[in-house]
Design a protein around this nucleic acid. Structure first.
Lengths: 234, 234
DNA sequence: AACTTGATTTTTGTATACAAAAATTCCAGT
DNA sequence: ACTGGAATTTTTGTATACAAAAATCAAGTT
């Protein structure tokens, strides 16, 4: 995704990548407003490439542009998140099944390296990188399937959902479980046990979904209590 | 997708929709150049909203922007098309399974109406509308699943692949088979036979894939012959 | 305190201008 | 006829200016 050629990159591409990265690392809250002028100043360019970048990110599902009102970081409802996780289950399990017989030692090593980085990030509560590392770990396992179009769709699904699964890990102290499951997944890949790995991956994603649903339910219970207190104080 | 509100639509949105529609109906050939100036003149606006529209359509996979050289209608190779059709199989069969128990008589009637329109379009060789009607027919069957995010992804997959399956129908006289299979699919939905319908849908999409692959093989055989003749004349 | 209205400011959408890159044309030499 | 280089034209990328829409602020009324 980085510009590895010597040809200068257009400002629009620079803006798209920068804004996307900042959304993925959680710099802006869900629903947070993205001001064209501010972004243009920060990135040292006019509003025009910013607008083009926002158009692109809107089509990727990361940004929602409201006409004459500007752009916000897209907010997903729980049903929407759950739906996208279900799509992930369908695509990722199929791709993993196909990838495992073709994974090389280098693929496994790369995934292992990413897992080590993810463990460190979990230990250090470096929340900003959890989603990115999670996506990279999964994609490293799938790459051997040589399905670049499918992987691009999967990457976009991660870009849209990992903010939420990451937040859930943070708020429910899901670290150990996430790490355990990733290690187990890697071990099954090393063992070339495609059927078990795909079934495990399915369970892994569905666990995240269940935990997210449980967390949302807790929030729903917690919110009315807050409102009650506010009335008393107000 | 049409603007049903009284609020005026931005020029960018207008341009996006217009250009997308023209790509889907085959107005431009695969790989055809999209000139910003020409589009701006045709649509009666400046280049700025055209550029924004092209950025959006690029993220949808319909357009490929080459820096400093402009935009072309995206070309997919056979492996890429096959891959996207496989993704369609995964998503559409799952969604149809979920939709069928919830389909209403209105859903079935809508799909039947679209099938009648598709039959007419097939009879009249109205090629421009085949892809659009095909997508609409399928989406009508799935809508009862109430999975809007998944349907949006499926719609984009159709937008990216129906140009090719449509071309294959045209060039291999696949009309009768396409029509028969759509009718069979609708009948299985009417019978609420979800398992058979999903299996049939899978076979239907894979038939299209096989036919496309066969057609590409014929083209590969046909091409060297043309090149040979050209050398003799040249 | 809440609401309404008008004025002002901010933000967005778009056109125009300009610079840079790419494509095309032209011309001279072989 | 072909090639290479220069000149010209076309096209793209971006900044700036302007108009319109939305948001904010201030004053007055209930």
């Amino acid at each position: 995704m980085n510009n590895v050629n010597d040809t200068p990159q257009s400002l629009t591409t620079t803006a798209t990548e920068s804004i996307r990265q900042r959304i993925l690392t959680g710099e802006w809250a869900d629903g947070g407003q993205l001001r064209q002028d501010a972004l243009a100043r920060e990135l040292g360019m006019s509003r025009v490439p910013i607008r083009e970048a926002l158009r692109q990110l809107e089509a990727e599902g990361l940004v929602t542009i409201v006409e004459n009102r500007g752009a916000v970081v897209t907010q997903l409802s729980l049903p929407e998140i759950v739906e996208l996780l279900r799509v992930r289950v369908l695509l990722e399990c199929d791709v993993l099944l196909e990838a495992i017989p073709r994974q090389t030692a280098a693929d496994i090593a790369e995934a292992g390296q990413l897992l080590a980085e993810f463990e460190q990030a979990l230990d250090h509560r470096d929340v900003a990188s959890w989603g990115v590392l999670n996506a990279r770990f999964h994609l490293a396992l799938y790459r051997a399937a040589e399905r670049p179009q499918t992987l691009a769709i999967i990457e976009q699904l991660h870009n849209r959902t990992d903010r939420y699964t990451r937040m859930q890990i943070l708020l429910t102290d899901f670290n150990d479980r996430a790490h355990r499951e990733h290690n187990q997944l890697l071990a099954l890949c090393q063992a070339k046990d495609a059927i078990s790995a795909a079934a495990f991956l399915r369970a892994h994603i569905l666990h995240a979904e269940e935990a997210l649903e449980a967390w949302y339910r807790e929030q729903a219970l917690a919110k009315p209590a807050k409102r009650g207190r506010k009335r008393k104080d107000g």
